[in-house]
Amino acid sequence: MAERLVVIGGGTMGSGIGYVAANAGYQVELVEVDGGRAAAALATLAARWDKAVRTGRQDAADAAAARDRLTTATALADLPSEPSVVIEAVPERVELKRQVLREAERLRPDLLASNTSSIAIGALAAVLASPDRFCGLHFFNPVWSMRLLEVVVGPDTAAATTDAALALAVRLGKEPIVVADAPGFASSRLGVALGLEAIRMVEAKVASPADIDTAMTLGYRHPMGPLELTDVVGLDVRLAIAETLREAYGDRFAPPDLLQRMVAEGRLGRKSGQGFYRWVDGKKVVDE
């Protein structure tokens, strides 16, 4: 029988984690309290598997077996205890994550992790009975194609837990890095700093979003410019991370007025169809 891996949260990140885990041979239980969102996640992943087969990246039988290994539930209480791994992937709100992690710990997993991109692991571990079995696993979007996985070691994380997280990363086909517990870790701290400065440049009319992004893609060989990446991540997500980092490091991470205004107006990037660029069916539209 396949090892069990539980993912809590059926959004973009949670469903992506479930997809790569099912492909890696885990029996995946994706927990999403919203039934409609759970159905949407399954439909998205089914389309992803179909595309993998159609483009020759995955054998049809392997894709079907992986799809069969992923199921959904609407409550943690419905799941049997003692999975190998539980990964929390709910929105970036400290109290929400703490509540979910407390409930998840009752399943007695060998490894409990949070997919937080900016919240200190020690702050989340403070509510756990066994913080030594807890760490951060910061995946990147889209999970199925981004190789990096940040393993974040909290103040109480045991060496055996770190080893287990590294082994999991390799099994999922990721390239792990280990970072100490600090708000923003390594990737978000650097990425958000660049993104916020790019937004300030738009705000000051230094250059257009497209030209700022071209400066980084051609001048620094970034695969995607910081403003397009902000659209892909979600302006609301970037704002939440910036506010967390501002609390930790001061006003150098203060979110620009333009970012706050765009979020208030619902211009959240790719998921809303409008951010620094226009998006249709998930694809950036280049206006003439």
Results as ranks from 00 to 15, higher is better:
Ile8Leu: 14
Gly14Met: 04
Gly16Asp: 10
Ile17Arg: 07
Gly18Gln: 12
Ala21Phe: 13
Val28Thr: 13
Ala40Arg: 11
Thr44Leu: 11
Ala47Met: 03
Arg48Asp: 10
Trp49Gly: 06
Ala65Trp: 00
Thr71Trp: 00
Thr72Gly: 02
Thr74Arg: 12
Ala77Val: 03
Ser81Gly: 12
Val90Arg: 02
Val90Tyr: 00
Glu92His: 01
Arg93Glu: 12
Glu95Met: 06
Glu95Lys: 05
Leu96Cys: 01
Lys97Phe: 01
Val100Pro: 03
Ser114Met: 03
Ile119Leu: 14
Ala123Asp: 14
Leu124Pro: 01
Ala125Phe: 00
Val127Ala: 08
Leu128Lys: 08
Phe134Asp: 11
Phe139Pro: 09
Arg147Lys: 15
Val151Tyr: 08
Val152Glu: 11
Gly154Ile: 14
Ala160Asn: 12
Thr161Val: 13
Arg171Asn: 11
Lys174Gln: 12
Glu175Ser: 13
Val178Ser: 02
Phe185Asp: 11
Phe185Asn: 13
Leu194Asp: 03
Leu196Phe: 08
Glu203Leu: 06
Ala204Lys: 10
Val206Tyr: 01
Asp213Ile: 08
His222Asn: 11
His222Asp: 05
Met224Asp: 13
Leu229Cys: 10
Thr230Val: 14
Asp236Trp: 10
Val237Lys: 00
Thr244Ala: 15
Thr244Asn: 14
Arg246Thr: 08
Arg246Trp: 05
Ala248Pro: 02
Gly250Tyr: 07
Asp251Glu: 15
Ala254Trp: 02
Gln260Lys: 15
Glu265Ser: 06
Arg267Ala: 08
Arg267Ile: 01
Leu268Tyr: 08
Arg270Gln: 15
Gln274Phe: 09
Gly275Ile: 02
Phe276Leu: 07
Asp281Arg: 02
